[in-house]
């Protein structure tokens, strides 16, 4: 018997039974295994793609890096090539003066960290980013603090100077601001400035003051324009912010309550007082920190001609009425 002369019958083995199975025919465990396997496959593909992308990125960096090397080698003196981008009022001249770059300095000569520190010394600058742009441009991007109040500081020698205060409490000498803007800012009172590294430490509690001033300027500008000074003396202890108007009237706000409501009450009271005594200041103090009960101290009407009374009145002030504000 030989193989060549015979047609061998095909025997079917159990291996011919198809093992493919659809997910819907699987048990819960089978489907879980199927999903896991699919996730593994996807993960593998994702890893491959990520690896490919990373390789491409490395190649790009390598290529760009080598292209930048000649640029860096050919760096030229910066001169006046300072590019300033800011959201405030500082200008190119201030930048040049502050950085004080040597005339023949190239970009590679600059220590950007030191230059950045030099900019940040000025309290008006909140953040600074310096970028070399070859061959000879230094790009500076600044974000500036905005003043919300003024403060009068007195140096050890008795020299007085007006400084600006930002929302975060930073105290700094303002540069480049419009004079009218500065004049419109209220003065701060009841605070103690603490010297710190060539300037002053930030004032605590300015967030609440900034909210009050911002709200007043936005919602009741006719009131705000008359505000002369803001006192933080009782902010920490009683949560109160005092405001003194140019007319001499004192107003006490609660830092814990909604400022909008308090401003509405203030407007109502001042309107009521003005209509009662037109052209004559009659209100001495308004306390808005007690909720709906608003004590108002009135200024007594001018005293009549002195009469030969044996005893003078106990006080120049009238009694403090309580006005129920709607």
């Amino acid at each position: 018997m030989s193989k060549e002369t015979l047609e061998l019958p095909l025997t079917r083995s159990w291996r011919d039974i198809p093992q493919a199975v659809k997910p819907r025919a699987m048990s819960r465990e089978g489907r879980r295994r199927f999903l896991l396997r699919a996730c593994r496959l996807l993960g593998a593909v994702a890893t491959l793609v990520a690896a490919g992308w990373a390789s491409w990125q490395v190649a790009q960096v390598w290529d760009n890096g080598s292209r930048h090397l000649p640029d860096a080698a050919e760096a030229k003196p910066i001169g006046k090539n300072l590019l300033l981008q800011t959201d405030g009022v500082l200008d190119q001249a201030w930048l040049a003066a502050t950085l004080a770059l040597p005339k023949k300095a190239t970009l590679m000569d600059l220590d950007l960290t030191k230059l950045k520190a030099r900019l940040l010394v000025h309290g008006q600058v909140a953040t600074a980013a310096l970028v070399r742009k070859f061959p000879a441009t230094l790009s500076v991007r600044l974000t500036e603090r905005m003043p919300i109040a003024r403060v009068m500081a007195e140096a050890a020698g008795g020299e007085r100077s007006a400084l600006l205060v930002a929302r975060d409490g930073a105290v700094y000498p303002g540069v480049g601001y419009d004079r009218d803007l500065i004049e419109s800012l209220p003065w701060l009172d009841g605070i103690k400035l603490t010297p710190q590294a060539g300037g002053y430490a930030p004032i605590v509690g300015m967030d609440a003051v900034a909210d009050l001033l911002g709200r007043a300027k936005l919602e009741a500008d006719w009131l705000y324009r008359d505000w002369h000074a803001v006192s933080l003396a009782r902010l920490e202890s009683d949560g109160q912010i005092g405001v003194r108007l140019r007319s001499g009237t004192s107003i006490i706000f609660s830092a814990k309550d909604d400022f909008f409501g308090q401003l509405a009450k203030l407007d109502y009271i001042l309107d009521t007082a003005a209509s009662a005594h037109p052209g004559q200041p009659t209100v001495g103090e308004i306390d808005l920190s007690l909720g709906n009960q608003v004590p108002v101290r009135l200024i007594a009407a001018p005293a009549p001609a002195p009469a030969p009374l044996p005893v003078s009145p106990p006080s120049a002030l009238a009694t403090i009425p309580r006005i129920q504000v709607p």
């Binding site: 039974i17 025919a25 699987m26 048990s27 089978g30 489907r31 295994r33 199927f34 396997r37």
Partner: peptide, 18 residues
């Protein structure tokens, strides 16, 4: 064949290769 396939399909239902 059917009996063999039945046994194999029990395992395949768990998505495991025999």
């Amino acid at each position: 064949e059917q009996r063999l396939a039945d046994t194999i399909h029990v395992i395949r239902g768990c998505n495991l290769e025999v």
